[in-house]
Design a protein around this nucleic acid. Sequence first.
DNA 1: CTCAATTCGGATATTTATTATCCGCAATAA
DNA 2: TTATTGCGGATAATAAATATCCGAATTGAG
Lengths: 167, 167
Amino acid sequence: MRLGQGVEWAAHACALLAAAGEGRGLSLAALAEYHGVPAPYMAKQMQALSKAGLVRTSRGKTGGYALARPADQITLWDVTRALNGSAPLFQCTEIRQQGPCGAPRAECKRPCHIAAAFAQAETAWREALQGVTIADIAAGVGRDSSPQHITEAMHWLGSNLTDLPNR
Amino acid sequence: MRLGQGVEWAAHACALLAAAGEGRGLSLAALAEYHGVPAPYMAKQMQALSKAGLVRTSRGKTGGYALARPADQITLWDVTRALNGSAPLFQCTEIRQQGPCGAPRAECKRPCHIAAAFAQAETAWREALQGVTIADIAAGVGRDSSPQHITEAMHWLGSNLTDLPNR
DNA sequence: CTCAATTCGGATATTTATTATCCGCAATAA
DNA sequence: TTATTGCGGATAATAAATATCCGAATTGAG
C-alpha cells in the first residue's frame, strides 16, 4: 500500500504558491517546470486541488493557480484528501456475519472491533496531518535553505509570477 | 488508497486462534470455512503470518495453524505489517532536488519537511495499532456476542480443533 | 518401515486500481 | 477577434491486489 505520489507533487506546489504571496500565482507550465515533472499529469493534481477549493484559478492569457486562502489555513490533510479521497484505509467487509457461525445481524449494530481499531488509528493519522499547515512547510523549507538558494529561487519566482484577479 | 482486505481476514483468523486456546490450532480448511472465504487465498494470508513469525504451523495429517505467542503479545500492527509490508505510506521522491531551482545536495541531508510530516503521521497511525492486541479484539468480540452465539461458536471450534506438537 | 492422506509453501493467471497521457471545449485578457 | 490558459472527459500503459493451482514436506496408519 502506498500513497499516490500526486500528493507529494501537490504539497510541493502549494508550498511554492505560498512563497509566491497573497493573490499571486503561477501557471501550470511554471509549476511543472519548477518541480521537473510532466505538465499533463501535474495538471490533474492541480485540478483536484481546484475542485476541493484549495486553490483558485484564472483562465486566459495571464491565467494560473493561486492559493484560495492563507497558507496557515491549509493543512496537509486537506491536500491528501483532495488527491487521495477521504475513503477509509481499512474497509470492513463484515466477514463476521459469514460462515457457519456467522454473527446474527442483531449483534452487528456496532462496528466490528477490528474495524473500530483501524478507524481509531486512521483518526490519529488524520489529526497529525491536520496539525501541519502549508505555512509550516514553507517556513521550514526557508529555514533549511541557504541564502544563496533562496535568492535564486526568488528570482525565478519573480520572473514567472502572475497577478490573479481579485476573484 | 485502501488497505488490502487480507489484513481483515488475517486479523479475524488470529482472533479465532486466540479463542482456540494455548497450543491449539485450526487447519486452513477450518479457518476458511469459518469465515466463509475461499481457502486458497486465505492460505496466502496465513503463509504471510507464518513467515512473520506470528503463527506456528504443523504439517501432516493433523496439521494446522496456532498462535506463536500469547494473544496479548500480538498487535494489530504486527498483523498489518506481516501482510501489507512495512513500507512507508508516503514515499518521498525528492523532487525538491529537481528543476531549475533544485536544492543542492548539501542542503538535503535532513528529510524533506513534507516527508517528515507524513512520517510523523504514519508513526501516530502505527502506535495506535500497536496499542491494540489480538487479545483485546477477542475479548471485545466475546463481550458483544450473545451467550447463545458463543455456545454455538465454541461447539464448532471443539469439533475442529487440533492439538499442535509442542513445537 | 512403507505408504497414502493431508497439509504448507512458492509460483502462476486473472482482475482491479493507479498512473500517465492526450485532445476537444470553455473562458479570459490583450 | 485571437492567442493563450485551465477544465473535463476519454484513453493507453503500468503496477498492485486478488484468486488459483500444483509441487514439496510431514504426519499417522497399516
